[in-house]
Amino acid sequence: MELSTATLLGAWVSIFLTICILSFLYEDNPVYKLAEHLFLGVSIAVSVVEAYYGTFKPNMLDPVGRAATAVASGSDPGWDAVSVIPLLLCGVLFLKLVPKLSWVARIPIAFLVAMFAGLKLTGEANANLMTQVAESMPNLGQLWIDHGLWDWSADGAGVISGLVLVLGLCACLLHFYFSAPHNRPLRVVSRFGVLMLMFGFGASFGYTVMGRISLAIGRAQELLGLDRSLEQNAVVHPRIATLASIVLLVGVLAVWKLRGGKPESDEATES
């Protein structure tokens, strides 16, 4: 299999940069910081390029261009003419950079914030309030017919679970109710709510561990060449690239240490 020099170089650069970031696990060091700032620069640039070609150009510049061409040729620009408004709003937004006129930028900001506020309001009310409340009320009759009190083969579905769900939800909500002092009965209910919340947070922790390990697996697969075909590996030699990167980095860090280099914060090394 033949790979272009750029592809081969890319594979080695990718492995080297991975090792640079992983070096933070030993301690904060200049190579890590260099890679970190490289990442910041590239990621911001990627965002801007994609925002320009994905949104700015097709949704504003192209229709404005068409409208301008139409006007110049004496024909009707039609609906494209409306695109001048977002162009103006964007121009006004950039006045934020001019101290004397920065207040004018409040207009597009107000527009955007109000739009998000309006969308959030109805979205939250519909999906997270109404639907969740409605779906939490168990149909006990149907649960009894389908599963009885407790159906182990259906993950504990049944009347008991239906009741635990709705009572647990109420208890959690009461736990977050601060408009009245938590007297004894309320404390008991609130306690039940806390226990339910602990179950939920515990499950979240379990899933979070899984997610974090998964991300490290992805990097390990690249360093070991397990994400490529055997033919590609025969050309790229990812394990040699990994080893070479580690050796190079250890050398650089050794020189840095010998010259009296210290991590800027103790956070990375404190035990």
Partner: peptide, 27 residues
């Protein structure tokens, strides 16, 4: 699965409902 479907769902829904009320008020 029972933990995910029952206690976790109850806990999440309470957070969703609380969050929704907060978002509506802020909006």
């Amino acid at each position: 699965n029972w933990i995910m479907d029952v206690p976790n769902t109850a806990a999440r829904r309470s957070i969703f409902i609380g969050g929704a009320l907060g978002a509506i008020a802020t909006g």
